[in-house]
Design a protein around this nucleic acid. Structure first.
Length: 782
DNA sequence: GCAAGGTC
């Protein structure tokens, strides 16, 4: 037998490393062509190479002819055939190079639908450089030695039908998403940065938030009355009337009147019961996000941190649906590692248990274990938010292995002149898992011990408490992600990103998720004219179509064509209502963009858009009052409720990252004139001011425009600071700006200034830079 | 500049 050269392709770098070290028994060589980790080793006669992809390295997109939104007919877009574009060039090039010198390719991507497609994409990339190679597939559901060895001893064929089913989803999602996104953006005249997106997952998710808000608005609160008594048996305790809540006031009053006649009560029953409380289940992504959300992290923040902690080797893979630790997971090994951390005492205690029996959740999958700590971390040297997430994961892990908690529940029923009152007590007797996971702690309250027939002193009969029933609560990020999971919307890896998107598009806001008027208008318009895209059932249908493709019952083309036909029908309906849809969104956006009242006539002032994507501030009565002001083109603009100290007009604030600037809305206010004043126009002596073009491009222009057309271009990014100094070469004003956060530019606004370099581009002044950064800041974490 | 799905 001659030596064989084998190339193993995995879905991610981490898997490549694991597989290489398992198959080579630790003797693997590593190199980094184009910064891509490649692992090589010999096994018997054969040479093995392992390389990791980065998930999908190709992206579906339309060809250039469809790229101009305004010039593309949506009817054609529906039927356009998308192409695959390379997104990770370094990996693709490395893959081609490796493919050229191999005899056999083994696809070892994740054992799921997307994994199959990712593998097939790799094959498509390699085929031109190395046709006719033997191709095999390794299927494993955990990166353990046993699983990997078994998979490589039992290689199978690539499942092209499964990959095709994933591709079907890509094509359908892009067609619906792109067509409806463009339709809504064009109809509402929202192009450029603030386009209005629509999608199979995001739109039904937004609809959930909107539906909840409607439920809250339509909720009719009901009056109810509650009756409480303060009783005493050695110590005082509070008891509630058994019929709480009373729906009728007269009944509650009658009960109170009767109870008031008594001077004491008689114990009907008293029970004391010990109840065991089971520890919580292991962390799936959804449960993890929910818990992180409860302690103040957004879903996206929590996942971002978890991904970094995973990369740094502190916690296991954070994208998982699994809530059952696999038997191969060495729980004791993890606990032993944690001994080298502040969790040492807890780990030791749990290790000392006669047996370690972890809790199990309802969902058991085999691809990844639940999220657990894989190594000890130190609090010092870790960012505090990272530590809090790490601590959450460790605490949860410890809790899932700890004994039940035991709590004492007390319940007493007391007869007060034939009115029955009840009182409860709750006390933790043995904390068990609660010692390690204190995020759930319930308030403890005890009532005195008593026995049947005892007399209880009546201290006071409280006045009736009058309340109204409350509407259901708004979703939190955690509860919304749970609801998405229940309805099959999105995946463990994408749900948090979908929420992020809904925030970015200004469709919803707040810690308790509330749709904006734009979000509501979007859902309303789509529910009326394109109901399909607003319902979770679209995902369910797509899933079953995909199953049929995977089982070769139907072809990709068949499913895609059917979907395109449906989309074409939807678009027809939308088109006939285009103006009404556009108007409803525009009105909603205007409402949402109101920042206060116009200083001239008290009309609503709002942030408006030019049709090229620039933005400005104007009054709803612009036709008469002509109020107009320029505003920064990037960042958020918000109402402040404050008034300008100089002219008493309202102030708005501009939030750009962490920088918050308050500004007056009155364009004639001295504070605004000063902020925008750059210098004196060399042509006619007018004021040179910072201005914005219709496209949102900023430049310096003369205030006497259009009489004087003197303009100067400016860098489009970074803050502009007027220095008041004049250029030594031409006398024009000097401004300062920062370039991508790297040091300061000091430049003359005059492009024809003789002091400028030949290429006419502003240059960073080598020596003048005032705020020279210190030598490269050390990365917060490596 | 569009979706959702992988992964960093």
């Amino acid at each position: 037998m001659t030596a064989v050269r084998r190339l193993v392709v995995t879905e991610k770098n981490h898997a490549a490393l694991r597989i290489a070290s398992i198959l080579s028994e630790g003797k693997t060589r590593r190199s980094y062509p184009r910064k891509v980790a490649v692992f090589e080793f010999d096994r018997g006669e054969d040479q093995w190479t392992v390389v990791g992809l980065r998930g999908h390295v190709l992206k579906l997109d339309y060809t250039d002819e469809f790229n101009r939104w305004e010039a593309t007919e949506l009817k054609k877009l529906i039927w356009a055939e998308p192409i695959k574009e390379v997104t990770a060039h370094n990996i693709v090039e490395t893959l081609k190079e490796l493919a050229a010198k191999t005899d056999e390719v083994i696809i070892a991507t994740d054992y799921d639908r997307e994994g199959e497609l990712i593998g097939v994409e790799a094959l498509e990339i390699m085929r031109p450089v190395s046709p006719n190679k033997t191709v095999r597939r390794a299927k494993f559901s955990a990166l353990t030695k046993a699983d990997i060895d078994r998979a490589f001893e039992n290689l199978v064929e690539v499942d092209y039908a499964l990959a095709e089913s994933a591709e079907t989803r890509q094509v359908v999602d892009l067609a619906w998403g792109a067509t409806l996104t463009r339709f809504m953006s064009l109809a509402a005249n929202q192009l450029g940065h603030d386009f209005l997106s629509v999608g199979r997952v995001q739109t039904p998710t937004l609809a959930l938030v909107v539906d909840r808000e409607k439920e809250i608005e339509n909720f009719v609160p009901q009056d109810y009355w509650s009756l409480f008594a303060l009783l005493k048996k050695g110590e005082e305790f509070r008891a509630a009337h058994e019929k709480n809540p009373f729906w009728r006031r007269d009944e509650a009053e009658a009960a109170r009147a009767r109870a008031c006649l008594a001077v004491d009560g008689k114990v009907i029953s008293y029970e004391e019961q010990e109840k065991e409380e089971r520890p919580p289940v292991p962390f799936s992504t959804t449960i993890f996000i929910t818990e992180a959300n409860r302690i103040g992290f957004s879903a996206a923040q929590a996942m971002k941190i978890a991904e970094n902690l995973y990369q740094d080797g502190y916690i296991s893979y954070p994208r998982t649906d699994n809530t059952v630790y696999p038997p191969t997971l060495n729980l004791r090994g993890v606990l032993n590692k944690l001994k080298a951390s502040v969790f040492s005492d807890a780990a030791t205690e749990i290790l000392a248990q006669p047996s370690i029996r972890p809790t199990r959740g309802k969902t058991e999958t085999t691809d990844h274990p639940p999220i657990y700590p894989v190594d000890a971390a130190k609090k010092t040297g870790m960012r505090s938010d990272y530590w809090r997430i790490y601590e959450l994961v460790v605490s949860r892990f410890l809790a899932t292995l700890a004994p039940n908690a035991v709590a004492v529940h007390q319940e007493a029923r007391i007869d007060v002149n034939e009115e029955v009152f009840a009182a409860q007590g709750y006390r933790v007797k043995s904390p068990g898992w609660r010692k390690y996971y204190s995020y759930y702690d319930r308030e403890e309250k005890t009532i005195p011990k008593m026995s049947q027939g005892d007399r209880v002193e009546m201290v006071k009969m409280h006045d009736l408490e009058h309340n109204k029933t409350k509407p259901p609560p708004r979703y939190t990020q955690g509860s919304l992600i749970q609801e998405m999971e229940r309805k099959g919307l999105g995946t463990k890896s994408t749900r948090h990103e979908i929420l992020q998107k809904l925030f970015e598009r200004n469709y919803m806001e707040g810690r308790f998720l509330k749709p904006t008027s734009t979000g509501r208008a979007m859902v309303l318009a789509l529910e009326t004219h394109a109901r399909k895209i607003t319902e979770p059932e679209m995902t369910a249908h797509l899933e079953s179509d995909m199953d049929e493709v995977a089982r070769s019952i139907r072809t990709e083309k068949d499913v895609v064509t059917e979907s395109q036909e449906m989309l074409a029908d939807v678009l027809d309906v939308m088109d006939t209502h285009r103006d009404a849809i556009g108007m409803s969104i525009k009105v909603a956006m205007q409402e949402q963009n109101v920042v206060g009242k116009c200083p001239k006539d008290g009309g609503d002032l709002y942030v408006a858009r030019t049709n090229r994507g620039g933005r400005y501030l104007t009054c709803m009565n612009y036709a008469q009052c002509r109020t107009w002001n320029s505003v920064p083109q990037t960042g958020d603009l918000e109402a402040t409720g404050e008034h300008c100290p100089e002219c008493k007009s309202i102030m708005i604030q501009h939030v750009d990252g962490r920088r918050v600037t308050k500004m007056c809305v009155n364009s004639e206010c001295p504070s605004v004139v000063k902020r925008r004043h750059i210098g004196v126009c060399p042509k006619d002596g007018g004021n040179l001011t910072l201005r914005y073009s219709g496209r949102g491009k900023r430049f310096v222009g003369c205030a006497n425009y259009p009489k004087c057309t003197q303009t100067y271009p400016l860098p489009q990014k970074g803050p502009i600071h007027v220095t008041g100094r004049k250029c030594e070469h031409c006398g024009s004003p000097i401004i300062e700006t920062t370039f991508r956060g790297k040091g300061m530019w000091v430049l003359c606004i005059n492009m024809e200034c003789p002091g400028k370099a030949k290429n006419n581009k502003p240059k960073p002044p080598e020596k003048k830079a005032k705020k020279e950064r210190k030598p490269k800041a050390v990365k917060a974490r490596s």
